[in-house]
Design a protein around this nucleic acid. Structure first.
Length: 666
RNA sequence: GCCUGGGUAGCUCAGUCGGUAGAGCAACGCACUCGUAAUGCGUAGGUCAGGAGUUCGAUUCUCCUCCCAGGCUCCA
């Protein structure tokens, strides 16, 4: 037989005897590479290390520290999890076990409807370690579909996956699970355990070990609420004990930023039981932040040519019949109230009422675009299990704007809207944005194809002009028009969907909105929905988490705290505070009833941007000691005027602090 | 809504194999008067989420309800 020739990533070629495996290939490059290898790729396709090199392919070795390598580790660990569960619960059925961000899960159905408990996790982890100690090989086999069905005769979920392919259904899941049109692939670990899988896997279970089982959860089979609920176990796995520890540490850090925790610690808001689920009260410290957010928002809207409107919290059912909300979203609305002259609902959206304002008199093209803005509080019945602090709540306030414009104005209006939205988000400290453009669902839409195309193109151009990276989500638009959603990236890399700009061809129709054009004829306006923060509550929560509670000075509930070193500095401390307060600074004085160190600590824990310490030297010289949030050491002897000027400047500029952990940890 | 785990002082938690509870921090009072992340002593604070049942007796066991956490589903 002739030798096989493969290409290396650096472009060079190498010859091997036929049948040489990827692992032997790695060894030929270096023993350390071979040791670190968990899989390989042939022409970009991930494969097991035991695969023979194909002639002419480009071959790379996948190590555990790469994203693909971690996927292999996690996927292999998921198999061991399944094996352990099947050992501990004979007769259990196993479903799917994919890799997810930072980990994996596996879904099971336990015999006689049993459920996993938290204690079970420990037993399962122990069993997994035993399997890893046995260093079982992952041996790949290929079967026909019929053989696959036979092999998994007592595993209904595996059979369903295979049958889905056999029936010619387009099943992305099935492919990643190892079932394809040409047959199925399996991995055999031991006589007692074979799993359906595409692979690749590490050579043996002994390669694994740096994992943790995180939690148990219920999950619907195929993600379908109407189908049976399976028992899911989430886990994470890494290439080393250090990497695992780091991951767990990152989770802890994220927990410290949790707005619900910080909401209590910083006295921002609460969810009193007496109020009911999903309903919040804002405490004074959260309240001032909200007021500042709203003040800024109102100012920007005023500057941006918006007009302010106000609408009630309730409306007659007829209004929501007209708008279509009762038809489409009744389940998400609060139940109705019967009153003497009709049925009333708490409003789930502001748009119907804004349409009434538009329709209140005859409109001229000269008035367009008409931009209506309201901080409108809405109520939505969110299902109990979906509530999440301020992020997902039943009563919340939208910074809601509806813009009525002509078809010709659509392009410019969308572009300026996008400018406006991003500029406001930047002021709150976000700098990384991505967008999604959702296009027509061909099976469900209203309006002409022509207007859809035109609007979609206007949205796309606005994104292009802005240089905003975006993805197109085909068919993801609501039935009434295409939309842009804007995601921001926060300080620890999470993305949040915030703003949305939606075209609406339906509401103007339903409310029979018209304007008189320059041609003296009546025309239908186009309506744009635009939420910027989305929900004030949710945006506030995201801000708190983004800054880990250390809000920028302009937003901080308490901007400055003045501490006298001794009692007899109280007069001077009061004077400094009084002067700052008269300039609009939010400042408090903490009297010397406790040692200075204790009072510093208290102020630091509240993440107050500036702590001013004043003692004998300061009284004599008219200075303050400035202890700035995030700085290593205090700055002694700063003239009051100097501090004040810099502070006022920082507030006026809305300077955003560094959000890295080390900057806000203090 | 579904699955798992929870609910004990304002917060974080311990405890009660069934005999109505405890710590640290916070709060309040007194003393201390201090130069950059915890001064000392004392006081007060609980329908042990709510309701029903079993029991001589329930915070503890059982059931129901509410709420919270993590998921699933949903999110105009």
């Amino acid at each position: 037989m002739t030798a096989v020739t493969v290409r290396l990533p650096d472009g060079s070629t190498k010859e091997f005897e036929p049948g040489t495996t990827a692992l032997e290939f790695a060894r030929s490059i270096g023993p350390r590479l071979a040791k670190a290898a968990v899989a390989a790729t042939f022409d970009g396709q991930p494969v097991d290390l035991s695969r023979a090199l194909p002639d002419g392919a480009e071959v790379t070795v996948v190590t555990a520290t790469t994203p693909l390598g971690r996927e292999v580790l996690r996927h292999s660990t998921a198999h061991v999890l399944a094996q352990a569960v099947l050992r501990l619960w004979p007769g259990a059925h196993f479903a799917i076990g994919p890799v997810i961000e930072d980990g994996f899960y596996y879904d099971f159905e336990l015999p006689s409807g049993a459920h996993f408990t938290d204690e079970d996790l420990e037993r399962i982890a122990l069993e997994m370690r035993a399997i890893m100690a046995e260093d079982q090989p992952f041996v790949r086999h290929e079967h026909s579909i019929a053989e696959g069905l036979e092999l998994f005769g007592d595993q209904p979920f595996k059979r369903e996956i295979i049958e889905a392919v056999g029936a010619g259904q387009d099943e992305v899941d099935a492919v990643s699970e190892g079932a394809g049109e040409h047959g199925v692939s399996t991995y055999w670990n031991s006589p007692a355990f074979t799993d359906l899988c595409r692979g690749p896997h590490v050579p043996g279970t002994g390669t694994l070990g740096h994992f943790a089982l995180m939690r148990v959860a219920g999950a619907y089979w195929r993600g379908d609420e109407k189908r049976q609920q399976l028992q899911r176990i989430y886990g994470t796995a890494w290439e080393s004990e250090d990497a695992l520890a780091e991951h767990l540490h990152r989770l802890e850090e994220a927990e410290k930023r949790d707005h619900r925790k910080l909401g209590v610690e910083l006295d921002l808001f609460s969810f009193p039981h007496e109020l009911g689920g999903g309903l919040a009260v804002w405490h004074p410290k959260g309240g001032i932040v909200r007021k500042l957010m709203e003040d800024y928002s109102r100012q920007r809207h005023q500057d941006g040519g918006y007009e302010f409107v106000f609408t009630p919290h309730l409306a007659n059912a007829n209004l929501f019949e007209t708008s279509g909300h009762l038809g489409f979203y009744k389940d998400g609305m609060y139940p109705p109230m019967e009153m003497d002259n009709g049925t009333y609902y708490p409003k789930p959206m502001n748009c119907p009422m804004h349409c009434l304002i538009f329709a209140s008199r005859q409109r001229s093209y000269r008035e367009l675009p008409l931009r209506l803005f309201e901080l409108g509080t809405v109520y939505r019945y969110e299902r109990a299990g979906t509530l999440h602090g301020m992020m997902r709540i039943r009563g919340f306030t939208q910074d809601d704007s509806h813009i009525y414009c002509t078809e010709e104005q659509l392009g410019d209006e969308i572009t300026s809207l996008l400018d406006f939205v991003m500029s406001v988000l930047r002021a709150f400290g976000f700098s990384e944005f991505t967008a999604n453009l959702s296009t027509k669902d061909p099976d469900k839409y209203v309006g002409s194809d022509e207007i859809w195309d035109k609007a979609t193109e206007a949205l796309r151009q606005a994104l292009e002009r802005h240089g905003l990276p975006y993805e197109i989500k085909e068919g993801d638009a609501a039935f009434y028009g295409p939309k842009i959603d804007i995601d921001v990236r926060d300080a620890i890399g999470r993305t949040w969907q915030l703003s949305t700009i939606q075209c609406d061809f339906n509401h103007p129709e339903r409310f029979d909105l018209e304007y008189v054009g320059a041609d003296n004829a009546r025309h239908r306006p186009i309506m744009l929905h635009r939420a910027l923060f989305g929900s004030i509550e949710r945006f506030f929560a995201i801000l708190v988490e983004h800054f880990a509670g250390a809000l920028p000075t302009w937003l901080a509930p308490e901007q400055v705290r003045v501490l006298g070193v001794r009692d007899d500095h109280q007069g001077y401390a009061d004077q400094v505070a009084h002067d700052l307060r008269s300039l609009g600074i939010r400042v408090e004085v903490d009297p010397a009833t406790e040692p200075l160190g204790a009072r510093i600590r208290k102020a630091k824990m509240l993440k107050i941007p500036y702590i001013l310490v004043v003692g004998d030297d300061d009284v004599a010289a008219g200075t303050v000691g400035v202890n700035r949030r995030g700085s290593e050491r205090p700055d002694r002897g700063v003239p009051v005027a100097e501090f004040t000027t810099a502070l006022l400047d920082e507030v006026a500029e809305r300077t955003v602090p560094e959000t890295a952990d080390d900057a806000v940890a203090g």
